[in-house]
Amino acid sequence: MRVSRIPVTQKVVISEMPDLSLLDPLIEKYKGRKGNMIPLLQGAQNIYGYIPKEAFEKLSQDTGLSLSEMYGVATFYAQFRMNPVGKHIIKVCHGTACHVQNANSITDAIQDALKIKDTETTEDRLFTLESVACLGCCSLAPVMMIGDDTYGKLTGKAAVKIIKEIRIRESQNDEK
């Protein structure tokens, strides 16, 4: 008899079932087209903000693309997210210019303030922190981007202040 081994149990993450019908127009558009994998994934991410597991399955089912290849592609490219993201995505630039101007201290300060690590999302789903390669605003280094707004010539403190302001704004919105 072999030694009695206990198999690894996969963590079952129960998440809300996304509305998969939203994918139909996307599938309609790209089905059967050569090289459609990345646009499909990008489209799905645009819909949900991330790519839910169920979306992978539906895309595979409906387009005939292989799941393992799709997952391989999704995990290869930095753009794709497999988990829901916060309402505001904080992108801290870590390009060369920003690095030389101490971008690390910006990330550190935000991590401390939000108690999350790079790529993570706050518990209230308000913020997701991401490090990005270069936002192309080298002359304003160090830079971060929240939504469509870019903030330049930052310090850690200034960055945290901006985030706090957003949070306050959000809570006011909630009350309304």
């Binding site: 996969q10 597991k53 992978f56 399955e57 292989s66 799941l67 393992s68 290849e69 997952y71 391989g72 995990t75 290869f76």
Partner: peptide
């Protein structure tokens, strides 16, 4: 069958069945 795939990239790459399932 495409049952196996590469997941992640660079040093973190590993081989896993589709979606990291069994």
């Amino acid at each position: 069958a495409n049952a196996l795939g590469l997941v992640n990239r660079g040093y973190d790459t590993f081989v896993a069945p589709s979606m990291g399932n069994s």
